[in-house]
Design a protein around this nucleic acid. Structure first.
Lengths: 335, 335
DNA sequence: ATGAAAGCGCTAACAT
DNA sequence: ATGTTAGCGCTTTCAT
């Protein structure tokens, strides 16, 4: 529709003002529904806005005004976990007054949270959700809520899940099936959630009177790529584990793949349990037994907390931990 | 880390300039690696930047300069399809020079594409990917690529999938199982992809010599919520269909749910086929037979086309259609 | 090599 | 009721 542009460029507030024979300020008032504009002027300006298809620039507006009605979400990457979380966040935002901007600098480099925050905060968004940040000592001008953060003891409002309890449940599930040599494919050492999952694994073993074997623990790094070598290491052990608990589904899926390559059948020769219950875990073959995190609900809670902070409402809970649950599918079997 | 702020507010280029005893312009030159700055000055400014943790504001920068190194993705909502697409887009952007901004005004209201585009384009992003737009007569100042758009004949560079062929395959799968009364839960009438799926359904029926029964077609609207009533209508027909082909997985999942509520067993009493193969389709019970769209690959192609356009590279393909494929799971059975 | 100044599109304080 | 003006943080001429 050619009325979207004048001279092939964007329609700005100045174009509208000129065509309606009013000042830029008046157009701004009409757009923002401020008081003190004559009804006839409102009509005239609105007509021009419609005619020209004018829509105010988010960028220009947010540079100038404090309030933008935008919620920002900062992620290091769009992978299954963050994608699920985004679905929950979007759902929670339905029917609200807020718009959603998701930003990813496409780099998981050390300190991304701070850099992204610095690039967006104070400007684009009224409040920010930080997804799986490894740094939380952040000093922003706007409210920030962290989901699944590095540090448990952060002063940031936080949403996470029962990592420890979930890991205990996963390990006890394997123990209950008769497994005794249970490997653990750890997550990233710098993530609190990863450490708590390892703690749960160790705790369950100890409770069962099984002494901890450091050979049975490898760092898998939470992605399929980084999990391959450690998975192979674990599966090539002289006294190979009969079961592996992976710190997240992505690395569990890689364990299954690597096992297949090595001619090890899952679940006949090897039981595997993941963590997260991302949609992909049900898609893999065989479908993965895993610990379900209520990822979308976490998004929901994060939004609720953030909006409360933005509105400066009475301080609600500052730390929400949601329950995890074992989901038994087909990668685990009695020894 | 308190060095992120001065006086509790954002660190701006002015703060850096003041502390380094240079002008704002010089800091800008250092940040953007422009020529004509003394080596000693570069060092000094860079030190202050590091010390203060300065990062330029995306908003301010993009207001002023043409190039932002940001790819914008405009979606009406974050649901399984767009989330999958985002995963593909993010993957394609790994290691590139581009950052990613996803914008959703959280409204599927008529004309959202144009409004979002107007709010973002010309400012924040160097190029835009429009996801499932219903309007494509768009006149932007920057390159735009449409994924799965409304109009087939759009002049916009487009990425889509074989909707017609996929629908034929789905319908023929059901026909091959002996079904004759096959219902169709249509998509949104304003979406080209939805219409082509219906055309494929009709074509396959015709080819099989089955006359089209308008009672067997209901508009399902592509979401679980909107699909419920039409699904119930279809399943309450006096001469109930023995199979239903739904125009997307979300509505297929709703068909299964509604069937359960009505005491109709899938697949014993009713076969169901979806379209998309979103991860959720494998998660439902029983796992859904569906037509797979290579959603992530579509994201990949869209990025490639867009970057080419941004770089003004030799005009590559302006319209990519990817193949769809039948994925047989457990919701279809011989009659 | 560096600084001063204009201006991107907009909002808000201050006139009138 | 409406216009004028001063910035928001930044890049980019144009001077020096």
């Amino acid at each position: 529709m050619s009325n979207m542009t004048i001279d092939g460029s964007r329609v700005t507030i100045a174009d509208v003002a000129a065509r309606a024979n009013v000042s830029i300020a008046t157009v701004s008032r009409v757009v923002n529904e401020r008081y003190g504009v004559a009804a006839s002027t409102i009509t005239r300006v609105q007509d021009v806005i419609d005619e020209l298809g004018y829509e105010s620039s988010l960028v220009a507006r947010s540079l100038r005004s404090q309030r933008t009605n935008v919620i920002g979400v900062l992620v290091s990457d769009i992978e299954p976990f963050s994608a699920e979380l985004l679905k929950g966040i979007a759902r929670a935002l339905h029917g609200s007054e807020y718009e959603l901007v998701i930003y990813s600098g496409m780099s998981a480099k050390e300190g991304w949270e701070r850099r992204y925050l610095s690039r967006l905060s104070g400007t684009l968004a009224d409040g920010i959700i930080l997804v799986a940040p490894t740094v939380v000592e952040v000093n922003a001008t706007h409210p920030v809520v962290a989901v699944d953060p590095h540090l448990g003891g952060s002063f940031l409002p936080t949403v996470d899940a029962q990592n420890f309890e979930g890991a205990v449940a996963a390990t006890e599930h394997l123990l209950g099936l008769g497994h005794r040599r249970i490997g653990f494919l750890a997550g990233r050492a710098d993530l609190e959630s990863a450490r708590r999952r390892e703690a749960g694994y160790r705790f369950a073993l100890e409770l069962a009177g099984i002494s901890f074997d450091p050979d049975l623990v490898q760092e898998g790094g939470f992605t399929e790529e980084t999990a391959e070598v450690p998975a192979r290491t674990l599966l090539s052990l002289p006294d190979r584990p009969t079961a592996i608990f992976a710190a997240n589904d992505l690395s569990a899926i890689q364990v299954i793949r690597t096992a297949n390559e090595l001619g090890i059948d899952v679940p006949s020769d090897l039981s595997v349990v993941g963590f997260d219950n991302i949609p992909e875990s049900a898609l893999c073959d065989p479908p993965l037994t895993t610990i379900q995190q209520p990822i979308r609900a976490m998004g929901h809670h994060a939004i609720e907390m953030l909006i409360r902070l933005i509105r400066d409402d009475p301080p609600a809970t500052t730390h929400v931990t949601l329950a995890t649950e074992l989901v038994v599918r087909q990668t685990t079997r009695t020894l």
